[in-house]
């Protein structure tokens, strides 16, 4: 990898904190995004990017790890956090017309954005968002960009064959474990098995203040507002109901026969 320094785009999402109750509301059943943070699953993608740069031998200051997000104005806090952790620069696609985008509309906006940023070696993402939870976007992004889709990687390495840069990673399924290989550039999603994400340290927090975040609008990308957001989405959420709160159960302390009481409970519920 000595030849040219790595150029990695990490896609990150600003999502409602999963530690608190989350709510759907309004006519389109959209998610309340007021208490949001950098999605914890995207921290694994950022860490993977930083580790690839560190092990690639790219000279300091040459490699780029661009943290990219799309979302409302406050989503820039996710980019700032990524800069504190170690991303070199940030891009925020922000436009009111993006609100309510489904996976198809999101992948269209992100694909257009990635093309706009110019040639990259890798587009890294988390294994899913913690709000939408569908894992559709990485696959749809790869399909739209016509780039290799190496997804759910639990290991990741770059290597070089006769000057051709390649990426390899392991993907664990239920019945199998695959070793995958692709030529760069590629879209790669990583699981929470791949690494232990680092925290921002004091030096990182100070350094982040000098890093730039570029804000782009749909017009900057030449995207038609009606092709994204609610109008550009291919799916509708017709209705959303909170799950009924679970009624408080019976809690007993074991006095020596709790196993038998447990079986009594199962029998009473017709579960035996």
């Amino acid at each position: 990898m000595e030849t040219t320094a790595l150029n990695i785009v990490v896609l990150i999402k600003h999502v409602p904190d999963t530690q608190f109750d989350r709510h759907l509301s309004g006519p389109d059943n959209t998610l309340d995004r007021s208490e949001s943070i950098l999605s914890e699953l995207d921290e694994y993608a950022l860490e993977a990017a930083l580790q690839l740069v560190e092990s690639s031998g790219s000279a300091a200051g040459e490699a780029r790890v661009t943290a990219v997000t799309m979302g409302p104005a406050q989503a820039v806090t996710a980019v700032r956090k990524a800069l504190q952790i170690g991303a070199t620069d940030g891009v925020h696609l922000s436009d009111d017309a993006l609100a309510g985008s489904d996976a198809a509309a999101t992948s269209l906006a992100l694909a257009t954005l990635v093309r706009h940023l110019g040639p990259v070696d890798l587009v890294l993402t988390g294994m899913s968002s913690t709000d939408g939870e569908t894992s559709l976007v990485p696959a749809q992004l790869a399909a739209r960009l016509e780039l290799p889709q190496l997804t759910f990687a639990s290991t990741l390495e770059l290597f070089d064959v006769d000057g051709v840069r390649k990426v390899t990673g392991r993907r664990d399924g239920d019945a199998y474990s695959y070793q995958l290989e692709a030529i760069l550039p590629a879209v790669v999603s990583v699981t929470d098995q791949i690494n232990s994400p680092r925290y921002p340290n004091f030096k990182g927090i100070m350094a982040a203040k000098k890093k730039t975040v570029t804000t782009l609008s749909l017009a900057d990308l030449g995207l038609n507002p009606s092709d994204v957001g609610r109008s550009g989405s291919w799916t509708d959420v017709v209705e959303a109901q909170p799950r009924p709160v679970r009624a408080a159960g019976t809690i007993i302390t074991d006095d020596g026969d709790a196993g038998i009481q447990l079986v009594d409970f199962l029998a009473a519920q017709n579960l035996l």
Binding site: T18, D21, R22, L24, N29, L31, D102, A103, A104, D131, E133, T134, S135, L136, S233, W234, T235, D236, V237, V238, E239, A240, Q241, P242, R243
Partner: peptide, 30 residues
């Protein structure tokens, strides 16, 4: 349009799914 994680699909292709880690049930259509 793609709907994932459906737990029921009606004859008119309306799909039901659990969202937000099981805290809501939603009905979706393409």
């Amino acid at each position: 349009g793609v709907i994932t994680d459906a737990i029921a699909v009606a004859a008119d292709l309306t799909a039901t799914k659990s969202v937000l880690a099981g805290s809501y049930t939603s009905t979706c259509r393409v």
